[in-house]
Amino acid sequence: MQSGDSLPELAPGDLPRQFTSRAALQQHLQQLFPSASGALSPIVGGWAAAQERLAAVDPGAYGRSRNHLAGAVTHLSPYIRHGVLGLAAVRDAVLGRITRRPEGEKLVNELGWRDYWQRLWGQLGDGIWDDQEPLKTGHPASSYASELPADIAGGSTGLACMDAFAAELRATGWLHNHARMWLAAYVVHWRRVRWQAGARWFLQHLLDGDPASNNLSWQWVASSFSHKPYLFNRANLERFGAGHHCQGCPAARRCPFDASYEALEQRLFAVTPTPRRR
């Protein structure tokens, strides 16, 4: 599986560097870390895989379609998170691929979010685990459950969309940004669970799991790092491509997301802020 030229020699306690297959690597890891759950992701680590992803980036298509689950998002996040690709190198690759500035504006802006969260982490340190501001939901922080309910992580809520997102998270370690937002909003607002419990769950699984981008995004959804809580409804979910889950959803007729924003605000919050929509 690996380059042969200058492999370090193995001393006692050094972990092996040669495997006949991914299955062999997985077996090795299972023996090495018996408490680590699950299997390998279909997403392959390493620079070669990152280069393939980078070559496929289409900034213009990204700008037009990124909010859709099937949109032309880059899937670069695990490689950026672990420094396989530097953020500056990705920036330069994007700038080098476009001829007009508007083609690249959306993607460069999203790269900026990563830099922004990293800078905040540098400032806040482990404080990113604390509420940055009071919640704007009208509910006291103490009314949120501190543990993630088992049906959410287990993908057995009976809501086809949320269960599919949880299964994808567990199997691949990657979710589209919109799926992350919907899942987080469901956990925090519909199930009234502290965002920290959801954030810890995501970090167990996300290959791009990064306490800064993750926790601060959870806080943005929860409203401890934003002016308003983030909400979605069924129409929003259907519009951006998760509607196919509704067909055959056991809860389709009593869908908790099938309402106007105004009705959801009344139902979910103790005040009536106007939630942000994306």
Binding site: R17, A36, G38, S41, V44, W47, H205
Partner: peptide, 14 residues
């Protein structure tokens, strides 16, 4: 989870 460790391991093998 194991997939996170596996991702790191595959990066290290290169």
């Amino acid at each position: 989870s194991l997939k996170r460790l596996g991702f790191l391991y595959e990066c290290l093998l290169e």
